[in-house]
């Protein structure tokens, strides 16, 4: 037998091997997650601007943003936006997943098509939506006009309330495929015998869903909702492309407002403070959901 070199002998040791296997991931996490995060925290506690390193000023940035009415609007918008779109995405996604879980001709084609909104680069599809919401050229306005539903133009993105609703609509459109496909994958792990057993046990269609499908799908649903909430909470592209936060700063979310302050006006430290302001809320959501998933999976 050939004698082995010192490196391969060292790698025989479990802790050495573990270290080297983990090292690339650790490096990437440190460089791209941990460092920017720490740097962001530092920025938010400083008075740095573009071209100015700045110095430590404590929580001054946070006091400032909490008394900023636009920030409060953005915070409110972010929560409402996340809550409402999540409910719609979950309901529509689940409905679609249940439909796609049935056997029908051309099933795989339909499944592929469903994914389209998810595959198209968000900025591009959002630009298409912007065109559809355009006050002059809106295809919706044209349609409603032809159907005699409206007799004056709807200013989809010009009216503060309507603009938020329009953005939510695009978010739901873009988010539903992710829910549908993930939940469909979850549905397919449920043994069809359980439905047959429940049918024989006397459960009707709705009862079979409520007592068998839903509880068994819950762990997958929670994971999907977790991912979606995090993404929606930090959404940027839709608002940036559709309204840029307007009209009159009415549709800002945490991310767009942070961008506007931090990059747009160059107040890096204040922008960082706004970004970090959503961190506690997200953390709570994540902790709660992970706890809940673990609880569901352990029963």
């Amino acid at each position: 037998m050939a004698t082995r070199g010192p490196i391969s002998r060292a790698l025989e040791r479990e802790d050495t091997l573990a270290f080297w296997l983990l090292a690339p991931t650790l490096l990437i996490l440190t460089l791209f997650i941990a460092y920017p995060f720490v740097r962001g925290v530092w920025l938010s506690l400083s008075n740095s601007t573009v071209g100015e390193p700045g110095h430590f000023i404590g929580l001054a940035n946070f006091y400032k943003i909490f008394s900023d009415s636009i920030f409060r609007t953005a915070a409110y918008n972010t929560f409402v936006y996340t809550a409402i779109t999540t409910v719609f995405k979950l309901a529509l996604g689940l409905w679609l997943a249940l439909l796609l879980n049935r056997h029908f001709r051309g099933k795989s084609w339909v499944r592929a098509f469903i994914l389209l909104p998810f595959i198209i680069p968000t900025v591009l599809s959002t630009l298409a939506w912007k065109w559809m919401f355009d006050p002059t050229f809106s295809v919706f306005n044209w349609l409603f006009w032809k159907l005699h539903i409206i007799n004056s133009r709807i200013n989809w993105l010009g009216d503060p309330e309507l603009a938020m609703g329009s953005i939510m609509m695009v978010n739901v459109w873009r988010g539903v495929p992710f829910y549908a496909i993930s939940l469909l994958a979850g549905l397919q792990t449920i043994n069809p015998d359980l439905h047959e057993a429940a049918a024989i046990d006397g459960a009707n269609r709705f009862q079979r869903f409520w007592y068998v499908t839903w509880p068994l799908l819950l762990p997958v649903t929670m994971v999907v909702v977790l991912f979606s909430v995090i993404q929606t909470f930090a959404d940027f592209q839709l608002v940036y492309v559709l309204t840029g936060g307007g009209p009159a700063n009415a549709t800002h979310l945490f991310a767009t407002y942070a961008y506007q302050i931090g990059i747009g006006t160059g107040l890096l430290s204040e922008g960082a403070a706004i970004s970090l302001a959503m961190f506690p809320a997200l953390l709570l959501v994540v902790v709660f959901q992970l706890w809940y998933i673990r609880k569901v999976e352990n029963r």
């Binding site: 015998d193 359980l194 047959e196 057993a197 049918a199 024989i200 009707n204 068998v212 509880p215 068994l216």
Partner: peptide, 19 residues
């Protein structure tokens, strides 16, 4: 429908409700 036939069935993989 199965539920109206007044039958009970034991499945090969038992089909117990796991939750």
């Amino acid at each position: 429908a199965p539920m109206d036939r007044d039958i009970a069935m034991v499945f090969q993989n038992y089909a117990l409700y796991p939750h």
